[in-house]
Write a protein that binds this DNA or RNA. Sequence first.
DNA 1: TTGTAAGCGTTATCAT
DNA 2: ATGATAACGCTTACAA
Lengths: 345, 345
Amino acid sequence: MALPPSEGLKQLAERTGVSISTVSRVLSGKAEKGRISVKTRERVLHEAGLQGVVINEVARGLRLRTTQTVGLIIPDISNPFFAALARQAERASRVRGYSVLLCDSEEDTEVEAGNVRLMRSRRVDGLVVAPVGGRHDHLAAVQKLGMPLVLLDRLLPELDVPGVASDNAVGAALAVEHLLKLGHRKIGCVQGLPASSSNASRVSGFLDAMARNGILVPPSWVVGKDYTIESVKQEALKLLSIPSRPTAIVALGNMIALGVLHAARELEIQVPEQLSLVSFDDQPWAEWISPPLTTVAQPVEEMGARAMDLFFETLAASGSNITPLNSRVILPMTLIERQSVTRLA
Amino acid sequence: MALPPSEGLKQLAERTGVSISTVSRVLSGKAEKGRISVKTRERVLHEAGLQGVVINEVARGLRLRTTQTVGLIIPDISNPFFAALARQAERASRVRGYSVLLCDSEEDTEVEAGNVRLMRSRRVDGLVVAPVGGRHDHLAAVQKLGMPLVLLDRLLPELDVPGVASDNAVGAALAVEHLLKLGHRKIGCVQGLPASSSNASRVSGFLDAMARNGILVPPSWVVGKDYTIESVKQEALKLLSIPSRPTAIVALGNMIALGVLHAARELEIQVPEQLSLVSFDDQPWAEWISPPLTTVAQPVEEMGARAMDLFFETLAASGSNITPLNSRVILPMTLIERQSVTRLA
DNA sequence: TTGTAAGCGTTATCAT
DNA sequence: ATGATAACGCTTACAA
């Protein structure tokens, strides 16, 4: 329960024979400004080196009112896409001397609200969150408090907060146009969590692109309600069992594509001969799937990096009284053609 | 730079007209023990509810000498295997009222040492780490300090510390025996990071199993030095380019299998017709690869859960003067047969 | 039943 | 060039 004892400024000061303040000054690099003599500085540094002096950041945080940590809230860290974003976030923080406190919201708004509360009580310096969607008063509150906040992957239209996301709508349009060009008309769509804005953008991008080409998609042709593989399979089964079934499906996520494949196998429908498939979120394995998956890819590394840039800018702005910028950066998606789509006779 | 202002005990106390200690007592549930009148308790709770009082955990941590956070150090959070472990760790911590401070060591011992130092200065209550391997005096130091520490996925034979890992050696033996049974004798091996203990166990398990069956593997038949797909491809290319090349390869990781596939494709070697392949770490996509991958799977969820159980036991033991248990739990691996292996004529 | 005050380990202000 | 000392916001004896 108790923290392990360890050397602090006090002990160091005693052993060195100087005051705590002096030690504090040299250890925090304020030796120049405090005009500490080179001699004492050396001595303190030397002693500090011998004993592994680890200054207590929690005391420091209390005094300085900053914890040098960013709160990262992710809906599912085991999802490779979010894991990649987390990696960027951690690295970007680390190189700037910040740590990351990680919370998984489990795609649940209530859990997310709890996460936010926790982060607040832990006094993180700001939040980077990929919001579940739906209710978001907890995020609005954070913003109102003036706490730095940037959104990741999923933007909240109702909330005027900086963030970075992919251009999901045109991504979906890319998929649709590719399919259309190859002669498909009967195109279905399997979505993930309807509440999430990235998903919603993809769906509306899909619908709009179809409409622009004069095709009205029956509501029952967009199915899906979450990311679990079994649920996706059931939803896809519904879509593929109707009398005049689609000749192509766009799966709004990589795991979703796998679910669709499961359904197709169960119904003995050959992909791509009898069913074309476009998926989202490219992965290293996508080209090795049978058939190699045509996907709409997002620039994951860049998303993470840009989000963190934005975060630290926001943080800096919140310190000074620079006008708190409010950028939303939308990154382009790209279609990667492989072999899960065929031209319709 | 500064934390956003927010209600604390002091403000609440003023508005309620009681002392800070009273507020502290009711908010920390010590109302019974402190025998606070029901009336004041209600009043405080009521006011606290109105204003979103968020108690300052950093001040609390300073006073109580505990931060209720566990430091998690992972060599690469973007690796799905580690991401899955991280998820378990986060969840297990959250349900127990703990938070997770996440560091990525980038498979670099020096970075890892830095991570440890950071965690120490942040006063996390203990560490869960999947160590890079190689140097580990920083971990020994943690242990010597009496700070709870449990190892994940990779054990350190030289260090007597609790931890959980898969039975990598028998996992490798499983792969070897499967191959042997189907008539293969010329079996190569592509490893990941040689320094990591899980990798080392797999390699020695592989070698031992071969030896038990009277086969001496030439050193040049175990290649590989890290997990990057391009490097794996180059290494596999070496292995597959020798005059009398292996008829089977065991790839000690899922990304490694992909690298081998790349190499085989480049050399126009058909899998499994001309080369059998067994990989490690099953993934949802493994059955959809062409050909579906025969793999040795580890119980990832269980690993994470068990490790966290162990961690919290260790934590509890470190508080009381219960003898600090020192369990190492080794979980079984299982062979999943799919179609990347053929019987040799 | 409630309040006062000391102390957790820092940093910053003000003396010296 | 350095040392005392007062916060930072909490918990917890000890007083009242």
